[in-house]
Design a protein around this nucleic acid. Structure first.
Lengths: 263, 263
DNA sequence: CAGTGGTCTAGACCACACT
DNA sequence: GTGTGGTCTAGACCACTGC
């Protein structure tokens, strides 16, 4: 804790200026400003995933606002899964590691809702290489064409049945030093990203299509050529809506289905 | 407003009994109880979709709690899209009618994010009949096998291209009197359900798979036999998690894609 | 026991919409 | 202006956790 950007010094929050002139240009509620400040500290890595952040009373003192205002800020962060509240203990930075759910963003479930069929996926890294980003990949990741990216291809199998083939691309900078061996360690990829590279995926967007299996997919997933597969393109974002991963997956949907809840 | 179940009379809320005995069997926070009471009124149809509900101060008075407690209850209802707050005007029951989004639960977007390509879908009712529910349909809708259900088949086309073929099943009871003509009226189906049958869909669950086009689908969607299509099975729920609609759709995903956000 | 988040209250003021 | 939801405060008490 060398630097604490939450010291009273930078708690200079723009107050709701003289009520008379309603021409306050860029006004936002106090609790939103607090939320933004806390977010900055999360992004800056001052509190790492799993860490306990200061108590509400503590933060209220630093920012010179009431506890209720801090509470509302944290409420929103908790609603966005950036932070986890635990009564009696405190508020913690959300983490993928030591989190019971195996796959944070994977919505694929087995057809038979086998109780606790958490049947560990068998993971196989097919390929892992560094290369210069093609234009389309670069654009999605917010890089320049030709920048270094890491490309990984892997297959996930459930109970011996290869079910998911996915290619993923990561920006070379933040993931310097990532190798196939590291990826083979136990634990989720996203957990590895957090613990080893300080990158926490916060949100993702997916585009789904139905496609026909090509040669490669048919071989790796052991299905006949032309079998309908669910194509899932995912862009995962870290704090600040910064894209940090592109994933293109092909899912077999004979034994599993993609589950979604709309509200 | 013949009966007002929110009169002070029924505001008998179990208070946090004598602090000494912590053996309160079924305790829940006051604001949760308020929320449940408001929900009951919504379910009972005392306030219809689009209606203005009483102000926070009003409700606080009726329930004999503080405005802040009512606020928290309404906050949650708003977060679940059951209610819409409008500063300066009041809180309204959420509605599908007069709501700008065309299709509440449809996640299909055109490949080219054409600005405002809200290109009205052309809707064609292919079939509409009453029948006795097969076992699988009945189970999903919470009916008994053989109960009356309404089955509708329709095609949605965008800019002349047939894109969605869907079959849907509705319980005969709540939708007594629904005919193909009524379905052909302008406005969303869900809007019609609200205004004509008092049924508001609140939430839905979908199962997605990739399948090959069969004879029927190929004909109605004008695609070659075997074309990969996105199969979407949707169960829509009204208040109280009561299933009210089963929909099985086949989407072409050459011109569109299914969009999903994970967080 | 002390410290944390969770609930509840009461009151003040602001921003907005309608009349 | 009046009434609505939106923000902010200050203080009280409860429920849970860990020492």
């Amino acid at each position: 804790m060398a630097t604490n950007s939450l010291a009273p010094s930078d708690s200079l929050i723009l107050q709701e200026a003289g009520a008379g002139a309603s021409a306050t240009p860029a006004f936002s509620p106090l609790y939103q400003q607090i939320k933004a400040l806390i977010l900055q500290s999360l992004q800056a890595g001052e509190w790492k995933p799993g860490d306990l952040i200061p108590s509400e009373i503590d933060l209220a003192g630093r920012f010179r606002v009431s506890q209720g205002t801090v509470r509302k800020a944290i409420d929103e962060l908790a609603a966005e899964n950036l932070v986890v509240r635990r009564q009696g203990r405190g508020t913690f930075v959300a983490t993928h590691a030591e989190q019971h759910v195996q796959y944070r963003f994977l919505r694929l479930l087995p057809n038979d809702g086998v109780a606790g069929s958490k049947g560990q996926a068998e993971r196989t890294i097919v390929d892992c290489r560094r290369l210069r980003a093609p234009a389309d990949i670069a654009r999605v990741l917010g890089l320049r064409t030709g920048d270094a990216v890491l490309q990984v291809r892997r297959v996930l199998a459930f109970q011996g049945v290869p079910t998911i083939l996915e290619d993923l691309w990561l920006p070379g900078g933040p993931f310097k030093g990532l190798t196939a061996e590291r990826l083979d360690s136990q634990g989720t990829m996203y957990a590895l990203f957090e613990t080893e590279f300080g990158v926490r995926m916060v949100r993702a967007e997916e585009k789904l299509r139905a496609v026909a299996s090509d040669d490669t997919a048919s071989e790796l997933l052991a299905v006949p050529l032309g079998t309908p597969l669910l194509s899932v393109e995912r862009i995962a974002y870290t704090y600040q809506d910064m894209p940090m991963e592109l994933r293109r997956g092909l899912y077999r949907t004979d034994t599993h289905y993609y589950s979604n809840t709309l509200s």
